[in-house]
Amino acid sequence: MLKNVYNWIDERLDITPLWRDVADHEVPEHVNPAHHFSAFVYCFGGLTFFITVIQILSGMFLTMYFVPDILNAYKSVDYLQHKVAFGGIVRGMHHWGASLVLVMMFLHTLRVFFTGSYKAPREMNWVVGMLIFFVMLGLGFTGYLLPWDNKAYFATKVGMQIAEAVPIIGPYVKELLQGGDIIGAETLTRFFAIHVFFLPGALLALLGAHFIMIRRQGISGPL
C-alpha cells in the first residue's frame, strides 16, 4: 500500500534522488558511538537540531497565549504558567531549551574546532554555523524580554547599554531595536517580531544551508 503510494508519487515527481540525498547514506565508523564510545562528541550537532525542533514546537504553542503588549504580556505569561493545563511544562521546555540549545551548540562548535573539521573544503559550513550561533544568541536576547517581568526588563536595559556603546553604529542599533528612546511598548513588539519571525526565518535558511553542505561534503573523515 505505502509502496504503491510512493511509486505513484515517484512516477510523477521523481523523488527518489531527493530521498537518497536526504536519507540514504552511511554513517562511518569513526562517528558512531556504537563502535567507539568517544564518538559521542559527534552527537552534539544532532542534539542541537533536536532541541531546536523542540524550541520551534514549544514556541508555536506559547504564541497561542502570549500577548505582545506591555499591559498584557506579563499577565498572559502568568496565566500560561499557572493556569493553563501543561502551560508550565511548555514554557519550561522553551525556557530551559533556550539554555540547553546554546550549551549543545557550544559543544558542537568545540568538537568541530578541535577535530579541525572546519578546514578545506568545509570553510563555508563553519561560517554558516557561526552565523547560526549568532542568530541563536539573538533569539536568546530577544526572547528574554518577552515575559516582561523585572528580570527581563533590566536585562534588556543592560543589553541596550552594551549595544549603544558600540562605536559609530551603536546608538542607531539601539534606537532600531528599541523603537524609540526608552524600552517600552515599541521595544516589546519589535522584540516579539524579531524573536518570532525575523530570526527564525534566518535560522531556518541557515540550517538548510548547513545541512545541504554537510550532505554535499559528507562528515569529515577520521583524524
Binding site: 508550565g88 519550561g92 522553551h94 530551559w96 516582561w148 517581568d149 523585572n150 528580570k151 526588563y153 526608552i182
Partner: peptide, 11 residues
C-alpha cells in the same frame, strides 16, 4: 524546575 517568572516590569 519551573521556568522563573518575577513581578511585572517596573522601570
Amino acid at each position: 524546575e519551573p521556568a522563573p517568572l518575577g513581578y511585572p516590569a517596573d522601570p
